[in-house]
Simulated scan of single mutants.
Amino acid sequence: MITYVALLRAVNVGGTGKLPMTELRKMCEAAGFSNVRTYIASGNVVFDSTLAKRAVQQALERSLEAYAGKPVGVLIRTGKEMAAVLDANPFRDEAPNRTVAIFLDAAPPADTLEHIAGQQNEQVALGKHEIYVHYGDGMAKTKLRIPAAKTGTARNINTIAKLAEWAAQS
């Protein structure tokens, strides 16, 4: 049994296209995942499965597309990988609520930093399959654009820490 963390991309927690976390839990259970837990209403779910990572991703994406009527991106990390993302945070001395990891399906391109636009008081660093960003003035007024992050999904360090903690408890 492997503990996985699924991060849904662009989940709408209110209004049109809403995905209640109770529905997400039901989808995961229907897919055969066990010990399913969601964390805050933004598409974070921790569960156990005997399936390989890619099979887990495909099963969840199929269920979500059937529910939403359109593709919903899902990024999967094992519990150990989520802990490694937390440990690799290059901005440990900065506010965790102003620091995010943008999760990607693959390693960020080597030229990612060269294509950033609108950078002001943000710090950006590349991880294994993530892009770390510290928003010095917060995210509300940022003009930062990272083209390589377009298909990713971001979580702040507080959320990553909680998901890694839950995954470690499985």
Rank of each mutant, 00 (worst) to 15 (best):
A149N: 06
F103P: 02
N35P: 04
A6W: 04
A125P: 03
S42M: 07
F47E: 02
A88T: 00
A55L: 14
A110W: 07
W166G: 02
L24V: 11
P90A: 03
L86H: 03
V74E: 13
A164P: 07
Y135C: 01
A88S: 07
R62M: 08
Y132V: 05
A148P: 10
P20S: 11
A140E: 15
R155M: 06
I131P: 01
D137W: 01
E130L: 08
N97H: 13
W166E: 10
H134G: 04
A110M: 08
L19R: 09
G118M: 07
L8S: 00
T22Q: 13
G152W: 00
H129R: 15
I76K: 01
R25I: 13
I102H: 02
P96L: 02
T3P: 07
T78L: 10
S49K: 00
F47A: 03
R54M: 12
A164S: 14
I2W: 11
L113Y: 02
E114L: 12
G152S: 04
T99I: 11
A95V: 12
E114I: 05
V36G: 08
L113Q: 04
R98Y: 14
Q119T: 05
E81V: 11
G14W: 08
A41W: 03
H115A: 09
A10E: 09
I157R: 00
M82N: 07
T153Q: 01
R155Y: 05
V46W: 05
I146L: 12
H129W: 09
I157A: 03
V11H: 01
R9F: 00
Y39R: 06
K80E: 15
L75F: 05
I2R: 14
M21Q: 08
A107F: 12
D87P: 02
A161H: 10
R92G: 13
M1I: 13
P20V: 13
P71D: 12
K141R: 13
L126I: 03
G17E: 11
V5A: 01
V36K: 07
A66N: 08
A88I: 02
G152D: 02
G127A: 01
M21W: 09
R37Y: 13
Y132A: 04
L19I: 14
R98E: 08
R62S: 14
R98L: 11
I116C: 06
L8W: 00
K53E: 15
L24F: 10
G14P: 09
D93M: 06
T112L: 05
K162D: 08
A154F: 02
L51E: 14
I76S: 03
A6Q: 04
T50R: 06
V56R: 03
V74L: 10
V72N: 07
V45M: 07
A55N: 14
I131N: 05
V85Q: 00
I116S: 08
A55C: 10
T22D: 11
I2L: 13
I2G: 00
R98N: 15
G79K: 03
G118K: 11
V100C: 10
S49E: 01
A125N: 03
A55H: 10
A41L: 10
F103A: 01
A149E: 06
I146C: 02
R25G: 09
T153R: 00
G118I: 04
T16W: 10
D48T: 08
M139E: 12
A41S: 14
A84Q: 11
T159C: 11
P108E: 10
P20K: 11
E165C: 09
I2D: 12
A110T: 12
G69E: 12
